[in-house]
Design a binder for these strands. Structure first.
Ligand code: FES
Ligand code: FES
Lengths: 139, 139
DNA sequence: GAATACTTGACTATTTTAGTCGGGTATATA
DNA sequence: TATATACCCGACTAAAATAGTCAAGTATTC
């Protein structure tokens, strides 16, 4: 079970932004330098964050991105969703009646994995961006 | 975040076994048929389970594998460990002082991911094989 | 009009996953 | 003791996912 870099960087970048006065555009270039994340990669990530109403963009000189909401109201689960990062522990399609083995019933472990999936999603659901942006002084 | 098939199948196979009288060897062929898992793949999986003292093998005709311990004493975390399935949410090496970006300090999100890693590992640590083998009547 | 910074789709190398294959060895039972 | 059953184990491979890069823009401010 691994977390991909896209989600990790997304949270890192947003945490970085949330350290600055809101409504003050933060450029990807700056985030890239501070957090050592490839600028090109960040661009890809922010397109998705924008589409999902987590940030908004300000174009032109001194532009950048701005958090669209208070960090207190941004759940990690939303960030993950924005990046199509899903927690998938079951081997089957959830809403299908078929099991992971192609049989007509769910397998003997299905319930367990489902429980795990809910368990993990709970973590993301209950964590807000603000929960981590304030923990440390350094950027 | 996805769970790989090896771990999923391992748990499935062990759950299958635990439905039968202990000390009664269960052949991989039977498990393969019942659970629709490739026999060749199962072999690969069971070599590892054996090396990690979760099952023992009985060779020859009517042989198979036997659980080495009571399902009550087999934690999911052990099964995962046996298959080198690690939960990895941080981007850095845990015991290194360096961060995921190659810098000398841990990044701003490190603590969060570490917390998640512990959270998930907890799940596996607290689940026993017996917790799922008895839930359903069917195999 | 020059510089800054966002926008977007396509492309690619690398790694991981999910298996398969081949050629063994050990044991029970007929 | 022959044969079938079933474990043993390293090497191999196709396919998918990941982690980016690249090229060619557009919008805005100074
Ligand atoms: S995981 Fe859903 S049926 Fe096996
Ligand atoms: S995840 Fe450990 S330093 Fe970034």
């Amino acid at each position: 079970m691994k977390l991909n870099t896209k989600s990790r960087y997304a949270v890192m970048a947003l945490a970085d932004m949330s350290k600055f006065p809101i409504n003050n555009p933060v450029s990807l270039r700056d985030i890239s330098l501070r957090q050592s994340i490839s600028l090109l990669y960040l661009e890809q990530i922010f397109i998705k964050l924008k589409k999902n109403d987590i940030v908004k963009s300000v174009r032109g000189t001194n532009g950048g991105y701005v958090l669209k909401r208070d960090p207190k109201n941004i759940k990690l689960s939303e960030i993950f969703q924005a990046l199509d990062q899903k927690v998938k522990t079951v081997g089957c399609k959830k809403d299908s009646k078929k099991g992971c083995n192609g049989k007509s019933a769910k397998c003997i472990t299905h319930e367990l994995w489902d429980e795990l999936e809910i368990y993990i999603n709970n973590f993301f659901e209950n964590k807000k961006l603000s929960d981590l942006s304030l923990t440390k002084g350094d950027i």
